[in-house]
Design a protein around this nucleic acid. Structure first.
Lengths: 230, 230
DNA sequence: TCAAAAGTGTTTGCAATACACCCATGC
DNA sequence: GCATGGGTGTATTGCAAACACTTTTGA
């Protein structure tokens, strides 16, 4: 977050990214190790300043790409955080985006102001600088609400997945268990999943049918008044 | 929005307020008539620049008070809007708050850069400058979702109200009709309303029981896992 | 043959829906 | 009396929850 080109950036305005992943039935957050002061060497949210020539979402995409190598993912704005003392050196207001990343899609690649990047379990976050913990918790709260009425969970799963993985994702998000037969029925009745000509391989039990999410079908249903809800 | 004190403000960062009201069974938005260029004389959202010494929410409260006289109302951040061309003179990113105002609470009082303030029906909005229409529609979309799982509607009603007013509010928000007996039961079963020792007066029909929303009870229920949902 | 997950069927009870109906008040 | 909204009662239906059960695969 060193200011190298003061002509180019909007001084007191940064973006920060909360990047969520899902693996081993747990929700993860991607953090980078800061390579500049303040808080040198500390795990933190990837962030950077906004440039005059780019809109906010573009800034967020750029920062995400530069700092972590992650690109082309689902991204949405959470909001602005601007407490007077949130950043020690000067007044910086940050606009936060959260992103959902499919497993395998990301190729970790620390950028100029980070010497490393790593996934952390939500329940095992390290010390975080500034208001980053507050930001992550706010992102999670928003994510939980979004999961209820938008099929965004598919952005955290591979393109092909068995139903139980979807269930495990919802269980991880809400922190509760669902009944398998009932969850199945509820999902299948929505008509958003397409069964593929493919099954799981190499699992030590009956192999599961794989499905993919059909976004076109979802959009069409939405037009007719359908409301996704779990 | 004239910059009179460039030392004091964060140059490219403003706040804008979407103020919702409810009267005659219709959702309203409070707009002010701009008294400076650009878009002089045009109805617009009340807005202003953020100062270095105030946090964002304080800026929003201040702007709201200065421009319209409205104070002490329910307010929540919608998010940041920052398209490159949203404001013609220069790059301005704005952080939007939406507010809910009880009828009678507001005393209209146009501020320094507005010669007037007025309520408009959502369905009869005038021409709006910049991205203000987009902002209002985004606020409304957020409001609709919030209404589903948070009892914020009470911030649009007087402290004492009959059940039918609450129903009319939900009908205006969602644009659909509810069955009266069923709506009643649903609300009453939640145990959030306290019947008062008071009834409607001077109405040309049987006078209705008045209720008030019990926030303490709501908070207590929320702690025990209760989830408000309509 | 056993463990583990895939997948189906069925019963039960609650809650949303859709009404029909009576009550109070002002004009 | 009548229009208008206040307020209660009830039959029906749909669906979520609970759980018992069969199937398939690898080791």
């Amino acid at each position: 977050m060193k200011i190298t080109d003061t002509e180019n950036i909007i001084e007191p305005l940064s973006v920060d990214c909360v990047i969520f992943g899902f693996e081993d039935a747990r929700i993860k957050v991607l953090l980078i190790k800061r390579s500049i002061e303040p808080e040198f060497g500390v795990w933190a949210l990837p962030g950077g300043f906004i440039r005059y020539s780019e809109n906010i979402e573009a800034a967020s995409s750029r920062v995400l790409k530069e700092r972590t190598g992650v690109a082309n993912v689902y991204m949405e704005q959470l909001g602005a955080f601007g407490e007077l003392d949130r950043f020690p050196l000067k007044r910086v207001i940050t606009i936060v985006y959260y992103a959902l990343v499919k497993p395998g899609k990301y190729k970790l690649n620390a950028g100029p102001d980070a010497s490393d990047a790593r996934w952390f379990n939500l329940s095992e976050l390290p010390y975080l600088p500034f208001d980053h913990e507050k930001i992550i918790l706010a992102s999670l709260a928003r994510l939980r609400r979004q999961f209820k009425y938008k099929p965004i969970g598919f952005n955290l799963l591979p393109d092909k997945f068995p139903l139980l993985k979807l269930q495990e994702l919802y269980q991880a998000i809400y922190g509760i268990e669902f009944d398998k037969p009932n969850f199945r029925r509820k999902i299948m009745k929505m008509n958003l999943l397409v069964p593929l000509d493919e099954k799981q391989k190499g699992v030590p039990h009956r192999s599961a049918q794989l499905y993919k999410f059909d976004k076109n079908r979802y959009d069409a249903l939405t037009e007719t008044g359908f409301i996704f809800e779990i």
